[in-house]
Structure formats: C-alpha cells, structure tokens
Amino acid sequence: METTESFESLIRTEFTARNTYLNTASNGLLPVRTVAALQEAALLRAEGRPLLPLHEDVEGCRAAYARLVGVPATRVAAGASVAAHTGVIAASLPTGAEVLTVEGDFTSVLNPFHVRGDLKVRSVPLERVAESVRPGTALVAVSAVQSADGRIADLGDLREAARDHGARTYVDFSQSAGWLPMDADLHDFTASVAYKWLLGPHGAAFLTVPEDFGGLTPVLAGWVAGEVPWESCYGPVAELARSARRFDLTHALFSYTGLRRSLELIEELGVSALHAHATGLADRFRAGLESLGREPLPAPGSAIVSVPGLGSRQAGLSEAGIEVSNREGNLRAAFHLYNTTADVDRLVDALAD
C-alpha cells in the first residue's frame, strides 16, 4: 500500500484532467501510462510490426484481474462486454428456469434473460432480493453496486439464501471493481467491464466461472477460445481451452494493452487504499449536502452518491467544468483515486449557488 504522500504524488503524475471529474460511474479517466501504451500499440499496427506483445497483454490482464478478484487466472475469461457474458449465462438455462433480478438494475445484467422469452424473470427491490430467493429459483443476478444510485448489495445474505435454495449466483462488479474489495470465489459467476473504476479503455470485460464451468456452453466461442488458438483459425475448433479461456471473445487488443497498465496502477496503490480514499470523499460530499439541506439517496459506504431533484443541474455543472451524471432526475457523483477534497468542495459550492 502506498503512503499518503506517495499516493498523491503518483496520482499527480498519472492523471491530467483539466476539469473536476466526478463521473467515474460512467467512465474512468485513463492514466498517462495507459495512454502511452495505447499510442505504442497504434504505432505497432501503423508500422507493420508484430502484434505478439499485444496478445501477451491480454494474458497479463487476465492474471491481474484474477488477483484483484481472488480467483485463479484459469477461471477468468476475457471478453468485450458484460451483456455478452450475461448472454452466455442466459443461454445455459433450461426453458422455464426462474431468474431473480433487482428492479432497476443495469440493463446488461438483465436484458439477455428477458430476450430469451422462455425464462421466468422476476424482479424485486434490492433490499428484498435475499428474502425473495425461493425453491425453484435457478439463478440470482445482481450488481454488487447499483449503477443508478450506488447502493451496495448484501452479497453475504444473498449467497446464503441462494445456497439454501440451490440457486446459483451471478454478480456484476462493474461499479465496484477497483474501489470495493471483492471475492469472486464466493459466487458462481461474476463479470465486470474495465472502463469504469478499473480505468481501462472501452472494449474489455471479464467473466469468472467455477472450475467446472458451471454448466456453461461457450456459445460465442471463436478461434481465441481454442486450447491452441493459432491452430484453431480454420474450421470448427478441434479442442476448446481447458480453462475459462474457452469463453473468451476475440480480443480488442489495443484495449487490453492499455488496460494492463491501468491494472498495474490499481495493484500498486491497493484496493484497500482506493476504498478508503473514495468513500472518504463520498462521505465528505454527503456532509456538504447536509449543510445545504439536501439528502442523498441512502447508499452507506458507497463511493457513488445520488441526490434527488438535482439532475437538472448536470448540464450547467458541466459548462462550469464539473462532470457528474443525471440519472432519472438525480445528480450522481462518483469519487475515485484521482479526486480530492477540493473537488468535493467545488461541487458543494456550485450546488449552493
């Protein structure tokens, strides 16, 4: 873990935002090292040099993400979106299977189950998801942190309820990977995009599966899913990878090359330090809102703060150099490693006007 001084020094070196950026729940900022890696990758293509280093970066990302979520790299698949990973899970369910979801959860976690048309998809409020697992529930799908308002799911209660009723669990870490400590080994399936709190480019996402693959069929498998990819380019794949790589999608090489450097930064700083930093700023913002007579939606312990009735201020704040989100009329601010107390105070002052 970095000391406070080295933490702040590294952040000043790695980030070059020209505004007050409080919108990581939409997109994370790219570190300087990541931008440099993307530029070098583009030059490889432009100059016709071998791209093997970019393929090696995919494996470096797989290993780094595995360390981050606490599972062996053999259980991590590298893809492009959570929706695609959800689709693989949805395709594995038998006709009539019940999927329990959360009302208002992010579409990528939900829609592949709905478009099947022959599944029983049931939605309940987040605070009732554990108590709503029942005999016959095949799968519970939920985001660890809700995108719209930052509420954190009680994954312990959910896991216990699912175990008691023989249901599998699928958790989306997209709004938590990078600031909230997590353990993918506690769930059957997990997924995450990399362009938010993991500070990577668009086009990279991860899926974790059990050692026995949890009954999933690699319905999107292409040549990269072969045990020997370069011998799997023509005709049907003779042998699928013996690891979770059988669920890989063709890799967006530039994205993974950049992401590898971003994950290195996350590991250098440590998720525990990032958690303390981000949630400390979020709490400072909540205190500032209280001084303005405003009350955010309840999301204790979250790095995301959503304030009812202020979403209409988003455009004006952006013009003033403060980036936040408008989610269904709520102002959403998200705090990460590159934010400071000055950023929080500037937002509070702007909202006071």
Rank of each mutant, 00 (worst) to 15 (best):
D118Q: 09
T217D: 12
A315S: 15
S123H: 10
A63C: 03
A46Y: 11
R346V: 11
S318W: 14
H165C: 15
A205E: 00
E59A: 10
S26V: 13
N23R: 15
E295D: 13
P50D: 15
C61E: 11
I322N: 05
E239T: 11
E231L: 12
D188Q: 13
G150A: 13
L180R: 12
E160N: 09
L155E: 14
R62V: 04
N326C: 07
D154K: 02
D149A: 04
F206I: 07
Q175C: 09
L269D: 02
E127Q: 13
R168P: 00
V32P: 01
D283A: 14
V237D: 01
T24M: 04
S123Q: 10
N23C: 09
V237C: 06
S147R: 15
A352V: 03
G270H: 00
A167D: 01
R346W: 08
T217S: 13
W179C: 02
A204T: 06
D283R: 13
V115Y: 10
H275T: 08
A83N: 02
V237F: 05
A73M: 05
G70C: 06
Y195T: 11
H85D: 02
A41H: 11
D185R: 10
R284A: 09
L216V: 10
E59V: 05
D183K: 00
A252L: 14
A91G: 03
Q314V: 14
R128M: 11
D149Q: 03
V124G: 09
H277K: 14
L22Q: 12
E227R: 08
T20N: 08
V109N: 02
H165N: 09
A73E: 03
L30E: 02
L155T: 05
L337N: 02
V348N: 04
P53S: 02
V344P: 02
N23D: 15
A225G: 02
T279R: 07
L158D: 03
R313E: 11
H165G: 08
L126Q: 05
V124F: 08
E267L: 07
L281W: 15
A37H: 08
P298K: 14
L68P: 04
T107E: 02
A241L: 00
